[in-house]
Design a protein around this nucleic acid. Structure first.
Lengths: 241, 241
DNA sequence: GACGTGTATTTCACTTATTGAAACGTCCTT
DNA sequence: AAGGACGTTTCAATAAGTGAAATACACGTC
């Protein structure tokens, strides 16, 4: 089983990633960071520029282009979030035994559950996937609207449904909540301390959702590339991988 | 002036775009859409897959990968929005003579003005860039929170500041408002009909922000590539370019 | 069960298209 | 003036991408 990869494309994508990571990169810096010759970096960046994936600001530097924003927004809007979140939900179930949900704001001012992972306890939640929920009086609603709770998560006891406690955390790329990860547990089973413990787990998964690369880096060329170390990412890969 | 473009990279990027546009594409479809041979498409898609830009779902089809979402979210969060919006603001000023603003939700539940373009009237607005605004009682706040006004824009007369009328429209990739474009005008100067006229302009610019490609297509190779014609893009380029 | 169609995948010879060192022009700082 | 850093262009070497064809697989239909 050979490992077919087009070097040119890989390099271009690494270059694109570098520009996005840095926010703004000069040609020389880009070439240094990616360990490409200046001429190659220039050529590839020009191609990226021609397709709108990067743009040149005022004088010189390269920045992420509108195409990146556009595609990202599209993908974010699509259901890609659910497949993206599934491993996180899985981990939460493993760690807590309770059901874990992914929800996003709906266009009508409510929210909707996009995906779930059933807990392992015998007394647990029926599936809510596809159901919509009001944003008022729910943990999920609180994080979807409000944004950044101090501790990174919100606990609501006996909110929309009596007898259940919800613990939710926002997925907030760029400071705006676009989704929520939550764990739902029968209230009788949980103490305040437990809720905080779970809250931290939920918050960690939610925070890592968009920064974590998930699949492995492209083997050959990545090992010698500078990785903008993200502490959260480090933690997660260390714990779970 | 040669026209340096790496064909391989261009093809890969077109492929990526196709997958993102379609949300889900089978290899054969991708090859068809991009007019590539199956083997080439497969090789390039594999490269994209290896770098996380696309992923394969259940059995077979390719979908936008987490890397796309990640980079998009990053870019969206960065200040790229302001440079992205500047031409739109410029056009609004040209067409209305009034000051035009770009604002985004802030982490503290307020909003903040990121960029502006001063109007041409002698009586006009002092610059608000950098200032934050409450989301309650403002046109910008309404679209940043609520999302989708029926007509595509919101008019608020004498809201936070007496004597001024604000006309705002949401920038909503994937149905979620991430920013607002607005025009602010002294109330005495504007009639209801005028407000609606401007509202339509604002809404058009806001809607086109993320779908419009902005820079020209890559000259040489684009003509024979299938372009997913976007009506909004057509309108705007026709009117303003 | 045989056949046909539509896939996904692999192989391989052809040669195109990418590559990087070197050279050039410019704008800095010293 | 010299030195250094950057962006850019040129060009010959060859590494690398290409696509037709062959293989294998999965479904449907007859």
């Amino acid at each position: 089983m050979p490992e077919p990869s087009t070097r040119t494309v890989e390099r271009a994508l690494v270059l694109l990633g570098a520009v996005c990571d840095a926010g703004s990169l000069t040609l020389a810096d880009a070439a240094r960071v990616t360990e490409l010759s200046a001429s190659t970096a220039l050529r590839l960046l020009r191609t990226l520029e021609g397709t709108g994936f990067v743009r040149r600001d005022g004088l010189g530097s390269y920045r992420p282009g509108l195409r990146v924003v556009q595609l990202g927004a599209q993908a974010l809007g699509h259901e890609s979030l659910v497949s993206l979140a599934e491993p996180a939900l899985e981990r939460l179930v493993e760690m807590t035994g309770e059901s874990a949900y992914l929800s996003v704001p709906s266009h009508d001012g409510e929210g909707v559950y996009l995906a779930m992972r059933e807990g392992t306890h015998s007394v647990r939640h029926a599936s809510w996937v596809g159901r919509s929920l009001p944003l008022g009086g729910t943990a999920v609603g609180a994080v979807l609207r409000g944004g950044h709770p101090a501790e990174g998560f919100v606990v609501v006891r006996n909110g929309i449904e009596a007898d259940v406690t919800a613990i939710a955390s926002p997925v907030s790329p760029g400071g705006r909540a676009v989704a929520a990860i939550s764990v739902v547990v029968p209230s009788y089973r949980i103490t305040g301390a437990e809720a905080r413990r779970i809250g931290k787990l939920v918050a960690a998964e939610a925070a890592a959702l968009l920064t974590h690369t998930g699949s492995a880096e492209p083997g050959g060329s990545a090992e010698d590339l500078p990785v903008d170390a993200d502490p959260l990412q480090q933690d997660l890969t260390g714990e779970t991988a």
